[in-house]
Structure formats: C-alpha cells, structure tokens
C-alpha cells in the first residue's frame, strides 16, 4: 500500500509515467480519492488555491445532466410559416452587412490604438539632477497633455508624475551611492548602508 502511495505521489509530481497506475486510479476508489487530495495538497503548498474551493465538479455536472429535460422534437415557430421563412433571410443578410461594417470600424479603431507609441520600460527615466546629462525627461506612466485646459486633475497628474519620476531617479542613483559607500568602507562588512552620508534617526 505504501508503495502504491509513493507511486501515486510520483505520478502527481510528473516524475513517473506508469500507465498501469492510470487504470488502477480508475478502479480503486480510495486511490482515486487520494489522487484528488494530493492535488489539493499540492495546490495549497504552492499557494495556488482557488478563492472558492470547490474541488469536485463532476457531481455537479452529473446533476445537471440528470435534470436536463429530454428534447423530443423541435417546436414549431412563427419562422416556419412560408411567407416569413422567405422574408427572414433578407433581414438576416442586412444584419450581416451591418455587422461586417461595424467589425471594419472596430478594426480601424483597433489599429489606431495599437499604433500608439510603446511605453518604454523602467530604464527610461534619466536622473534629472545628474550633471552632464541634457535632454528631457519622459513621463513615467501617467501621460501629460498640453492641449487640454489645465484643471485640478491635470495639476494632480503632473504632481503625481513628478513624484513617480523622482522615485525612479532616486532608485538609479541609489546603486551609485551605495557603491561609493562600499568603497569608503573599504573591505568592511558589506550591507550596512546607513553608515555613510545618511542619518539614521535611531
């Protein structure tokens, strides 16, 4: 029995491809239950548990099939009246044309949106305070627009942008300043960066 457990565990982990185990899984009820539990354990160990843990949907599917009413013959509808049957295709075609037109419009809009400039990533922002670097800074993530009249919202965006850009700049310069400190410490223990130019309040 322990051997079987171990085989099953290896099978769940993808370390064994024992086909006889598959048939054993089908036949053996307790092994089948174990199979479900192992996956449950695996999910919870990896923090991959769904928010609403409903582990076995097979029963729900079975119930749904059972409660499904049997359909014997198609109902007669108004579409089966001869005149209507010949009119409906025209309406359908018109509808298809409209759909085709709207799809084309959507494609045009989609293409326009796809052709927006690519947002370049985290290495984009340049330190503003570094000497010797000319050139503008590009907005970080919230975009500025000049044509729109300035409102509180625009002002707020600008402020938020300035903070975000500064945060990025500080991150890049941090690597530099830490490096200088390491050199100043010259072989002393690494990883205590509050010795240098910064003041620790404690």
């Amino acid at each position: 029995m322990t051997q079987e457990h171990e085989n099953l565990s290896a099978f769940v982990d993808g370390e064994s491809q024992d086909s006889s185990l598959i048939s054993a899984l089908n036949d053996n009820e307790s092994l089948n239950a174990k199979w479900q539990r192992y996956h449950l354990i695996r999910h919870s160990l990896r923090k991959e548990m769904p928010e609403f843990a409903d582990f076995d949907i097979s029963e729900q599917v079975a119930n749904a099939i059972e409660s499904e009413p049997a359909i014997l013959a198609p109902k007669k509808t108004w579409r089966d009246v001869p005149v209507v049957a010949s009119v409906v295709p025209f309406i359908k075609q018109g509808g298809q044309l409209a759909i085709a037109a709207s799809v084309a419009a959507a494609v045009v809009i989609g293409v326009q949106q796809m052709n927006q400039p690519v947002d370049v990533g985290p290495m984009n922002s340049t330190p503003a305070t570094l000497p010797g670097i000319k050139g503008g800074l590009s907005p970080v993530s919230l975009e500025e627009t000049r044509t729109v009249p300035r409102t509180d919202v625009m002002e707020q965006r600008k402020v938020v942008n300035s903070f975000l850009t500064d945060h990025r700049n500080q991150l890049r310069m941090k690597a530099e300043s830490l490096h200088n400190q390491d050199e100043a410490l010259n072989g002393q223990e690494k990883g205590s960066p509050d010795n240098g130019e910064s003041n620790n309040p404690q």
């Binding site: 300035s162 903070f163 830490l178 509050d194």
Partner: peptide, 15 residues
C-alpha cells in the same frame, strides 16, 4: 533602514 536622506527639487514641478 534609511539608506538616503536629502532635500532636493522634483522634476517638472520644481517643488
């Protein structure tokens, strides 16, 4: 821990 402490101006707004 605090690795840096200074006073500077922000880009764009100069605050």
């Amino acid at each position: 821990e605090i690795v840096k402490r200074d006073r500077h101006r922000l880009p764009y707004t100069g605050q």
